[in-house]
Every structure is written in structure tokens, then in C-alpha cells.
């Protein structure tokens, strides 16, 4: 099963006990994110909301592509892929 590295913003350090990178595995991006929540279930309410989707101001990039621009999350995952979470900031 391919493995990817999930990078988390510093604001989430209190959630993970200071861990900023988590290795996940899965055949697709969706499976990788599901694996992330298995490995660190405390992240769920901070990344996803009651809609079942990403929180409004949470961004997730897969190899540099904003996952909001993807039609679905079922594209294949490859070894060494990078999944980056960050916060959307508008205004100054």
C-alpha cells in the first residue's frame, strides 16, 4: 500500500501532542485521509465539520493541488506523496 506524508500546521500541535508529520497509507487520497483519522482520531473535529467535508477555512493540498479543485478524492496515491493541511486566511 502506498505511503504518504501528512504535514500539519503548528496550530494543531496541541491536538497531536506536538507531532507535525504523520505517515499514512492508502490506495487513494480518500483512503489516506481515512487512515489519518484512524492514526490520530483527535484531528477529525478540527479538519472536518458536520457537513462531512473539510472545515470551511481548512485547506488540504495533495502534491500541491488544492483538493477543493478535485472532482473527487478517489485518485491514486503514490509512495512519497505529500498531503499538506493549512488554514485559509483572508484579509490582513
Amino acid at each position: 500500500m502506498p505511503e504518504a506524508t501528512v504535514s500539519l500546521p503548528s496550530l494543531l500541535e496541541p491536538v497531536t501532542g506536538g507531532v507535525r508529520e504523520i505517515t499514512v497509507s492508502g490506495g487513494t487520497l480518500r483512503e489516506a485521509l481515512a487512515d489519518l483519522l484512524v492514526r490520530e482520531p483527535r484531528l477529525r473535529p478540527h479538519l472536518f465539520d458536520e457537513t462531512g467535508g473539510l472545515r470551511e477555512h481548512v485547506l488540504c493540498f495533495h502534491n500541491g493541488t488544492n483538493t477543493r479543485w478535485l472532482d473527487h478524492w478517489d485518485g491514486p496515491l503514490s509512495d512519497g506523496d505529500a498531503i499538506l493541511f493549512m488554514q485559509a486566511v483572508s484579509g490582513g
Binding site: 491536538v15 501532542g17 482520531p41 458536520e50 462531512g52 481548512v58
Partner: peptide
Amino acid sequence: SDIYGPALQVTEDFERWEQLPAGPAYPEGG
């Protein structure tokens, strides 16, 4: 957090905190 939502944290020594594994939650889809 306006970005990351709410959580509950607990400490025994006023220094080391740990987020509770679960907290209040409304059902998904509502």
C-alpha cells in the same frame, strides 16, 4: 479556533495537556 473548531483539553499538572479523544458533537448532516 475559528479555523479548526473546538476541543476539550485536560491537564493533571498545569503544564502538560492532552486533548480528550471525544467531545460534544452534533450529528453529521444536520
